[in-house]
């Protein structure tokens, strides 16, 4: 009764990920990123999931709300990543309800680290590696933080931005440039500017990475974008994205 859902889960086993002798073509989900803007953190991702050179889905939601104060962006094996997100959602809510208090931000960050570490066999076999991003804030905290992980569970707090997935290289480069020489820099952008930048970053990544896709503002197909601010989490609607895109000058 200590509020630890993972302990509860281990005493009530649920079917885990098993790998047969013949491994099917593995699904991968890319590309996700997060950066600070003037109100908090924007976390965004494309919609594409690939299996080898096949586009498996262009409607994948990779930015997932874990609770009122935290978001996860998944990159890597969706089978494992979605299960991790679901486990964390239940873990955070179970703790809040049973202990009558919200889990602290460091504990949430480490909960994800623990799940990644527990996934080590899958990671080493190359069938279930996940490299997620996490954004969260303390219940009474104003400034949210961004964390990124390696597939073995090491956690790092990002100074201004983080990106993961096959298209992350392009996005990191652009965000590094903007953070150093941008006028305005990403952390100075208002909500509309940040939303616009997120879509542009994904289009840039898609230019150089075939596994990044499912975003095409000219056809009205936008990224998944969620904002974490001191007021909580806001999912940016398609209507808001269209307005930001048009205000930013479109394509």
């Amino acid at each position: 009764m200590n509020g630890d859902f993972l302990s509860l889960l281990s005493s009530n086993p649920f079917s885990g990920l098993t790998v047969g002798e013949k491994c099917p073509e593995l699904l991968e989900a890319t590309t996700v990123f997060a950066f600070h803007f003037s109100e908090g953190v924007v976390m965004a991702g494309d919609h594409r999931a690939t299996a080898g050179n096949v586009v498996f889905s262009d409607r994948t939601e990779k930015i997932i709300e874990l609770d009122h104060q935290s978001l996860i962006a998944i990159a890597g094996s969706p089978a494992v990543a979605f299960e991790m997100a679901r486990t964390l959602q239940t873990t955070f809510e179970y703790y809040r309800r049973s202990q009558l208090q919200v889990l602290s931000l460091p504990a949430k960050v480490r909960a994800l680290s623990r799940l990644l570490r527990d996934n080590l066999p899958g990671t080493l076999q190359g069938v279930g590696a996940v490299a997620p991003l996490f954004a969260g804030r303390e219940p009474d905290g104003d400034v949210p933080a961004i964390y990124f992980y390696d597939p073995l569970g090491a956690q790092f707090e990002a100074a201004g931005f983080a990106a993961s997935g096959s298209g992350a290289g392009s996005i990191r480069s652009v965000l590094h440039y903007l953070t150093r020489w941008g006028k305005p820099r990403p952390e100075q952008l208002d909500r509309g500017g940040a939303v616009n930048l997120a879509n542009r970053l994904l289009l840039t990544a898609a230019q150089f990475d075939t596994a990044t896709g499912g975003v095409d503002p000219s056809r009205g197909v936008f990224a998944t974008i969620r904002l974490l601010t001191s007021r909580g989490i806001h999912t940016v609607s398609e209507k808001e994205q269209i307005a930001a895109w048009e205000k930013g000058g479109g394509a």
Binding site: M1, L8, L9, T90, E93, Y94, R97
Partner: peptide, 15 residues
Amino acid sequence: LRQSVIETAHMEGFN
């Protein structure tokens, strides 16, 4: 009682 029913509900909801 509270802990017991919370535990059951979350396991049921998860599984």
